[in-house]
């Protein structure tokens, strides 16, 4: 089954990122394909390269990066939600006159059309933190 995942909840104020990650891994383990993970709302904070949790805690952004690399999963971050919350790639940082960019490698800023497309072209779209 082709499954897309929507992460709407904050990585620190909710368990959305962690639960979504475990779900994605479990689904892949059962032979399903995770086509795309879309980060929206507070979920976009999970794509910040500047999150520096203590050594003995999990960095969910890094977990997503590894999973995406291993299984060729697109990780799309809603550009409007990200800009509003200070998650910027180099191009957007320049465009908005900001001194730094912080979108982690493996994540891509794009529009809500990618979520609509995921809804249309996947067998399931599963939301975390809605």
């Amino acid at each position: 089954m082709k499954i897309a995942v929507l992460v709407y909840g904050s990585p620190t104020a909710s368990s959305a990122a962690a639960t979504a990650y475990r779900y994605a891994r479990a689904a892949i383990g059962l032979g399903h394909q995770i086509t795309r993970v879309f980060f929206y709302g507070e979920g976009v904070h999970g794509a910040s390269a500047l999150a520096a949790p203590p050594q003995d805690e999990v960095n969910w952004g890094q977990r997503w990066q590894q999973l995406a690399q291993e299984h060729e999963i697109e990780m799309i971050v809603c550009i409007a939600a990200a800009l509003r919350r200070g998650v910027l790639n180099q191009q957007e940082a320049q465009r908005h006159g900001k001194s730094a960019a912080n979108l982690a490698a493996g994540f891509e800023l794009s529009g809500l059309g990618q979520l609509a497309d995921a809804a249309l072209n996947s067998d399931r779209l599963i939301t975390f933190g809605g």
Partner: peptide, 19 residues
């Protein structure tokens, strides 16, 4: 917060995709 607007933005985008 932005929840109502997030939802509305998704509705309008989906409609543009003819969903």
């Amino acid at each position: 917060a932005t929840r109502a607007r997030d939802a509305l933005d998704l509705v309008l985008t989906s409609a543009a995709f003819e969903i």
